[in-house]
Structures are given as C-alpha cells and as structure tokens.
C-alpha cells in the first residue's frame, strides 16, 4: 500500500504494538459466535477507533482486550507478552488496562471521590491519602473538582461518564478502552465527554474507542478498524477509511449512518 493516505505514523516509527489481537475468536456460552479470527494492532500513543453496525462484536472485542471475555482461539499480546497463555495472571493485566463503559458503571454506594480512589486503594494497595490526592487531581482534570463528596446518582450522565474516565485513569493504565462512552448520553452532554477524551489523546494516551461518533473518529483516531459480523472488514487511517472506503460493507455501513442522522464527516 503506497497510498499516502494510508501511512500509519506509530507503526512506521517501528514501535512494537502495545496490544495485538492476533486472529482471536470468541463465542458466548450459549454458542453464539461473536468474533472470528479478528486481528488488529494498537501501538503506543495511538487512538484506534472500532466502528461497525450493532452486533458486529465491537464490545466483545474490547472486553477480550482486558480479558473480561475469554478468547477461544488466537493470541492476545499485551506489551509483548502473550496473555492468552495459561499462567498469565489476568488481574495483573487488567491493572494496566483502563475501561470506560457505555452506562458508566460508577459504584452507586460510594462518593464520587471514593469511586475514583477505589482502584488504587483496593487493587494497587496504595495508601488512602495518596489515592485520594490523586483522585482529587483527576477530578479536577475532568472538570469536576467540586463534586467529590456527592454520590454518582446526583450527577448528570455526562458528569458521571467523566468521573468514570477519572476512575479508570486513577490506575495509571497503559491503555484506555472506551465502549460507546457517549451512546447513553443526552446529545448536549456528548461534547463534554468527547472533549475529555480528546484531551487524553493529545496527551498521548493509548486508546481503543468503540464509537458511533464519526466526527470524533475522523478527527481524533490514528487508525480505524471497521467490523461486521465478528470479522474485520477493513482498517486504515480515518482519512482513507472515510474518503476512500474499499469495501462495499464499509460503504453500506456509512450509508446507513448517513440515513440515520446525516453526520458523516468529510474533510
């Protein structure tokens, strides 16, 4: 591929992938096959967006990355280590991977500050004072320094999702996974969450983002992976994917999105 649109900056620098899905397959206990030989790489500092229609396996793929779902075949390589090997401690891997959920999943019985501090306190056995200091710092970073003492249920959806991002960041992860972080939000709150994510990306955080926000994918992603039916349809830079989609199924997917809300970003 000599196409200039298709150069992948991080890969070109010769860096090893931080996360490598190497032909992974996955099936749910009820037998439903959700991923078939899916492969893609995430390099350090890269933002990779996963796109695809509902049911294409995006959530499953992202959950496989932090081993919340067990892969049935293929290799998952994290920081150069094959973590699908039997003797790998999944808990240790998850400590290095942050995750943000569609429905926030804040812990309703804890204050906002404690939500952010709980990971370091429980998983990393950090001293409480240190964990709370970091939590306050991170709440300030997501613009919620005055909300530490309230319960999550007293916050708006956008605020809850920003807390959830702070909670994941508190583990000081090497990579952050986002599964449709704005899909459960009222339209007026989408912007504040995307702004925080954009800031993270600019700071060089490695991110894997499942999203239907095409403008975000277009402007922030370094690499876009299009999935359908548990398989990779195509991958490339956002410029290339959005401007010159090669596969009919990608075009069909974009066409449907456009029909729905007319928001396919160009240029």
């Amino acid at each position: 591929m000599t196409d200039s649109l298709d150069t992948r900056k991080m890969a070109m620098s010769g860096a090893e992938p931080l996360v490598l899905l190497d032909g992974i397959s996955h099936a749910y206990p009820n037998g439903k096959v959700s991923l078939t030989e899916l492969s893609f790489a995430v390099h350090p500092g890269e933002v990779v967006c996963l796109l695809g229609p509902s049911g294409s396996g995006k959530s499953t793929a992202i959950r496989c990355v932090n081993m919340l779902e067990p892969v049935t075949a293929g290799r998952l390589v994290f920081e150069g280590i094959d973590v699908t090997a039997k003797d790998v401690n999944q808990v240790e891997v998850r400590k290095r991977v942050g995750m943000v959920f569609q429905n926030f999943e804040l812990f309703p019985h804890m204050s906002v500050l404690k939500n952010v501090a709980i990971g370091p306190i429980v998983s990393l056995k950090r001293p409480k004072a240190e964990a709370y200091d970091l939590a306050r710092e991170l709440l300030a970073k997501v613009g919620l320094s005055d909300k530490g003492d309230v319960l999550p249920s007293q916050l708006s959806g956008g605020q809850q999702q920003r807390v959830a991002i702070a909670r994941a960041l508190a583990m000081q992860p090497d990579v952050m996974l986002f599964d449709e972080p704005t899909s459960a939000l009222d339209p007026e709150m989408v912007g504040e969450v995307l702004a925080v994510m954009r800031k993270l990306a600019e700071e060089g955080m490695t991110m894997v983002v499942v999203t239907h926000e095409m403008r975000f994918a277009r402007n922030v992603a370094d690499w876009v992976v299009v999935m359908e039916d548990g398989r990779l349809v195509e991958e490339g830079t956002p410029e290339r994917i959005f401007e010159q989609p090669r596969m009919e199924r990608t075009r069909a997917f974009f066409g449907k999105l456009e029909e729905q809300d007319g928001v396919l970003p160009t240029g």
């Binding site: 959950r63 932090n66 919340l68 808990v91 240790e92 998850r94 400590k95 991977v97 942050g98 995750m99 959920f101 429905n103 999943e105 804040l106 812990f107 309703p108 019985h109 709980i118 990971g119 429980v122 998983s123 990393l124 909670r167 994941a168 583990m171």
Partner: peptide
C-alpha cells in the same frame, strides 16, 4: 453483572469485587 465487570476492569480480584462492589449494594 456490569458492576462486577467494572470492578474487575479496575484490577480487583473476584473476592474484592464481591466485598467492595456487589455486597454493599445488595445489602442495601
């Protein structure tokens, strides 16, 4: 179950998820 997932994603063990995340909410 997504609350359990959230706890696991924070690097908690299964036991920690039960005692820190699930049991307090269930108790209420």
């Amino acid at each position: 179950s997504t609350q359990t997932r959230a706890g696991l994603a924070l690097g908690m063990t299964r036991t920690q998820v039960v005692t820190r995340v699930v049991a307090p909410q269930a108790l209420i």
